[in-house]
Amino acid sequence: MSAPLNLLALLGRTTLAALSGVGALVLFAGHAMLLLLRPPYGPRLFLRHFAEIAYFSLPVVALTALFTGMVLALQTYTGFARFNAESAVASVVVLSVTRELGPVITGLIVAGRIGAAMAAEIGTMRVTDQIDALRTLSTDPMKYLVAPRLLAGLLALPLLVVVANLLGVFGGYLVGTMKLGFAGEAYLRNSWDVLEAIDVISGLAKASVFGFLITLMGCWYGYNSQGGAQGVGQATTKAVVAASILILASDYVLTEAFFAQ
């Protein structure tokens, strides 16, 4: 076969493999979501994963959001001062945090913390026959391992983002009032006046989507991991990388959907 045809064949194979992979992932997610509707329900499992995501991620999300808000206020002030627009600091901080930084930073942190842990745990279960053992113990692994994690991700991320939003704005407030000389009341009034419901709602909707994508990537790569420790390591890396990319890509799509004129 000639070189151009070889290239074409390679392109075709790669495209088909990619489409097949996406199809399998969609079926995987759809199957897990359908299982959520089918009894028996597992509140105990759901609560365990919900606590793992929402409660145990709280300290790192809170700290990151606080410092992000502080840095944002400082940078905004430095930049806007060139145009005598320092008064916009509170508005920029509150809009940036609620619309973008709260959900995206929370998503990326949870992807690193929870996505990796899920891929590693499920991947280890795969390579040590624990998933096969579930089948022999009258338990559907998709229902036991995947479905409750997806639901937990879907519901826990918005809660974390509420906290991240509050602390991000608070970080901006701290720097604004203690370092940049804004009056506390004026800073808060500026923040409140500029904020609209859609800013918060869009951020929470993004958080839900990000939570779903993070847990989906963790479960997908863990569930399909092969080999021993190396395979589990690769699954973990892929889960975090894929979740991070999907968070950023879906963030753009959702921003377009919510705010494009």
């Binding site: 280890t124 279960m125 040590t128 026959d129 624990q130 096969d132 053992a133 089948r135 022999t136 009258s138």
Partner: peptide, 18 residues
């Protein structure tokens, strides 16, 4: 599934849930 309910399996490495 009913058939699997009647079957037990001991895996090589135990496959206990950590």
């Amino acid at each position: 599934a009913a058939l699997l309910d009647r079957i037990g399996m001991l895996f090589q490495n135990g496959a206990l849930f950590d």
